[in-house]
């Protein structure tokens, strides 16, 4: 089919669009739980939210292997990332610098990705979790660096047990993966330093 082989456009103004997107990502991870808008001005390929596509276009290149769910990897999204980022698409989650997962899918688990090692905790995977909405899900309370007291979020469309996985990820601090929840053109950062509590 013609649409399978066509690769959509990337940034029209790479310098300034990636700079603006990066500042949104920096804001997301330095102030976990705040909703940041990424306006990349791009039409994402099928299967990726605009925020996911813009974040990868901003951060990924030939140095950073990307893991995608097999359906996306073999589809237009994989071709789009190969073309625009020049990134390798890997099959083993543990080899990925960046990963995109569907929040509702039961596999892979967060522990399947690279948590870094004790001497180089920075070598861990950054996972973009695509979710159904930022409201209406199970409410959790966040605390830790970047949060003055506490912050509450309730993203929807996450698999059962997801928050237990995130809490276990935080328990391994300073090791662990860093999460970006993405929906539409919004992101919420959940670095490994953030502690997860129940609803207030």
């Amino acid at each position: 089919m013609a649409t399978d082989t066509l690769i959509g456009a990337g940034f029209t103004d790479p310098v300034f669009q990636s700079q603006a997107a990066f500042r949104a990502l920096l804001g997301a991870l330095s102030e976990p739980g705040t909703l940041q808008a990424i306006h990349g001005g791009i039409a994402p390929p099928e299967g990726l939210h605009a925020a996911t596509a813009t974040a990868l276009l901003t951060l990924a290149d030939y140095e950073t292997p990307i893991w995608l769910p097999p359906a996306l990897r073999d589809g237009p999204a994989g071709a789009w990332l190969r073309f625009h980022c020049g990134a390798a698409l890997v099959e083993e989650p543990r080899r990925a610098a960046f990963a995109v997962i569907d929040g509702a899918a039961l596999a892979p688990q967060l522990t399947d990705f690279d948590p870094g090692n004790d001497q180089f905790p920075d070598r861990s995977t950054t996972i973009i979790v695509q979710c159904a909405a930022f409201h209406g899900g199970e409410a959790v309370t966040l605390s830790g660096p970047g949060i003055a007291t506490r912050r509450e979020i309730a993203p929807a469309g996450l698999r059962p047990g997801f928050w237990a996985e995130v809490a276990a990820n935080n328990a391994a601090y300073p090791l662990g993966v860093d999460l970006l929840l993405a929906h539409g053109d919004g992101v919420i950062g959940l670095p490994r330093s953030t502690q997860i509590g129940g609803a207030a």
């Binding site: 310098v15 290149d61 920075d122 330093s193």
Partner: peptide, 23 residues
């Protein structure tokens, strides 16, 4: 732009592990 991406990735990891020195 490639250098900026490399530095930006380091900055995001630095923010995720406060006080840890990212090469």
């Amino acid at each position: 732009e490639q250098t900026k991406r490399m530095i930006r990735r380091a900055l995001l990891k630095a923010v995720a592990v406060p006080g840890y020195q990212v090469p």
